Simulated scan of single mutants.
Amino acid sequence: MLQSGDIAPPFALPDADMEMFELAAERGRHHVVLYFYPRDNTPGCTLQAADFGDHEGDFARHDCIVVGVSPDDCLTHAEFRDQHGLSVRLLSDPDTEVCRLYDVWQQKEVDGVKKMGVRRTTFVIDKQGVIRHALHDVTPRGHAAAVFELVKELETQSCKRKSPRTPS
């Protein structure tokens, strides 16, 4: 299971407009909030995407982009985005390759039935491609604001790493 300090595995996935998003292309440019969610048009997933969209300007001020990933196809993402006026970039992983790569495709039990599904998880990845926070089984309400606080800490930590050490 991926955790803080691990290098974020690179991947490329299409978004709702069928344009490719490559995580490696963001290295050195942006921090990335990569969140995995079960599927479009469910109450929790809609709330989570809308909240991230509502904070998009805050994230951008800290050189951070937010992308969501689910197994839904590009067309479903586009309909979900348009129906709810979402601004967060939604990536399609219908073969669950990236979900498996990030170890969020797991067995769940719902009403006594076991099936595979996405474990709602968020990774905060710094500009160097290092996972700084891995949040599992998140609750959608208030999640975007909590993640924003972690992103703000990245800037503080980055400044501390860059500041010269004083000789003793």
Rank of each mutant, 00 (worst) to 15 (best):
P9M: 00
W105V: 07
A8K: 00
M1F: 11
A144I: 05
Q48H: 02
C64T: 03
H133L: 00
K108Y: 12
G57P: 07
K162M: 11
K162N: 11
V130E: 05
V130D: 00
F21C: 07
V66G: 09
M18E: 15
M1V: 09
E22H: 09
A16M: 06
F21H: 09
A25T: 02
G28R: 11
A78L: 15
L150N: 03
G5E: 12
L86C: 10
M20K: 12
R27N: 03
S158D: 07
L2I: 11
A16V: 03
D63Y: 08
D111K: 15
F59M: 03
I7W: 04
D6N: 14
A60S: 14
P9F: 03
K115F: 14
T96Q: 12
D73M: 11
R141Y: 04
G112R: 04
A145C: 06
L91P: 01
V33M: 00
H77V: 08
M20L: 14
L154N: 03
M1H: 11
V118A: 01
T122E: 00
D15V: 10
G85S: 11
D72L: 12
V104C: 09
A25E: 04
I125N: 00
G85A: 09
A24R: 14
M18K: 14
H143K: 06
A134W: 03
V147Y: 01
D51L: 07
R29H: 13
P71K: 12
A134R: 01
V138H: 02
R81Q: 13
R100T: 15
E56M: 09
Q157N: 13
V110T: 13
I131N: 00
A78M: 13
P164M: 14
F36M: 01
L90R: 05
A49R: 06
D111P: 05
L13Y: 01
D82Q: 14
E155V: 00
A60M: 13
A144L: 10
G142I: 06
P140Y: 01
N41R: 11
H77R: 11
G44V: 06
F80P: 03
E19C: 06
V104W: 02
C74M: 15
P38R: 08
G129V: 05
P167R: 08
R100C: 13
C74N: 13
E26V: 05
D6A: 07
D51V: 04
G68K: 12
D54I: 01
V124I: 10
G142T: 07
E109D: 14
S158W: 02
M18F: 12
D93A: 10
A60W: 14
E19W: 07
E97R: 06
D82Y: 12
A50R: 05
D95W: 09
G68E: 10
D6R: 06
I131M: 02
P38Q: 14
D40T: 04
Q3V: 03
F52G: 00
R89I: 06
D51T: 07
R119H: 08
P71F: 11
V110A: 10
D82L: 12
R89L: 08
P164I: 14
H133T: 02
T42E: 08
D63S: 13
A146T: 05
A16C: 05
R39H: 06
D51I: 02
S4W: 01
E155K: 00
P43S: 15
F11W: 06
P14K: 04
F123H: 03
R165P: 05
P10A: 10
K127Q: 12
D63N: 13
Q83A: 13
Q157W: 08
D17M: 11
